[in-house]
């Protein structure tokens, strides 16, 4: 049996959908990928090896070739700016990266702000978004509970991922602008794409068949 292809999967929000999707595409997946403590799991059919990684680490595993393939949110991939191929968008993990502020904030264009203080887990995308509009944001890089920042006057605005908007509403925040429409995306290591081209092509095709039949 040939060496399995290694795929890095994000632990958390996307895990269940990613495993279900791979399963539908005909690959045997570990039954407890989400809850298990093991971080490297051999696939039951020996075709894939799974690395369960922090979502933001998936592009790093793939760029360095520790994993041949990876599934990550487009938001994470764009933020990471890693040199990887993105052969496929996958039909799950839909969400959007938005600028949000307190619901009672005066309704005026962002470009009239002086130098907004913005809390986010996505400093690179946030910086680029504001710079493109001629603003110099003051970034507060956080690793959790970003929506808390405006409530305690830590920040004027936040840039964060939103699925339904419930969390924002519950915290008295409102969505102001969309920075990025996100969904899950398949990424591939540049060297693996060449060195194991046929296997990776077959994998992409198997996944692609399920993407189109879903839509």
């Amino acid at each position: 049996m040939a060496e399995p292809l290694t795929i890095a999967l994000p632990k958390g929000r996307l895990t269940r959908d990613a495993l279900a999707f791979l399963s539908r595409a005909g690959y045997a997946v570990p039954s407890n990928g989400d809850n298990g403590r093991k971080l490297v799991i051999e696939g039951p059919d020996g075709r894939l090896r799974f690395i369960m990684a922090r979502p933001s680490d998936v592009p790093i595993f793939v760029e360095y070739g520790a994993a041949d393939l990876g599934i990550a949110g487009l938001d994470v991939v764009r933020e990471a700016e890693r040199d990887v191929y993105e052969p496929l968008r996958l039909p799950f993990g839909y969400c959007r990266l938005v600028v949000a502020g307190k619901a009672d904030r005066p309704d005026r264009p962002l470009r009239l702000e002086r130098s907004p203080r913005v809390a986010t887990k996505f400093p690179r995308l946030t910086e680029a978004f504001f710079r493109r509009r001629g603003l110099a944001p003051e970034l507060i890089v956080m690793s959790g509970s970003v929506e808390l920042a405006p409530l305690v006057a830590l920040a004027d605005l936040i840039v964060d991922l939103v699925q339904t908007g419930t969390t924002l509403r519950e915290n008295g925040l409102t969505e102001l602008r969309v920075v990025l429409e996100s969904q899950a995306v398949l990424i591939a290591n540049r060297a693996s794409y060449r060195l194991r081209g046929e296997e990776i092509r077959a994998f992409i095709d198997a996944l692609a068949a399920n993407v189109t039949s879903d839509e």
Binding site: D83, A191, S192, R194, L195
Partner: peptide, 11 residues
């Protein structure tokens, strides 16, 4: 042209 080796994501 570019040359690649296993385990290294860069040429």
């Amino acid at each position: 042209f570019e040359g690649f080796a296993p385990g290294l994501g860069f040429n």
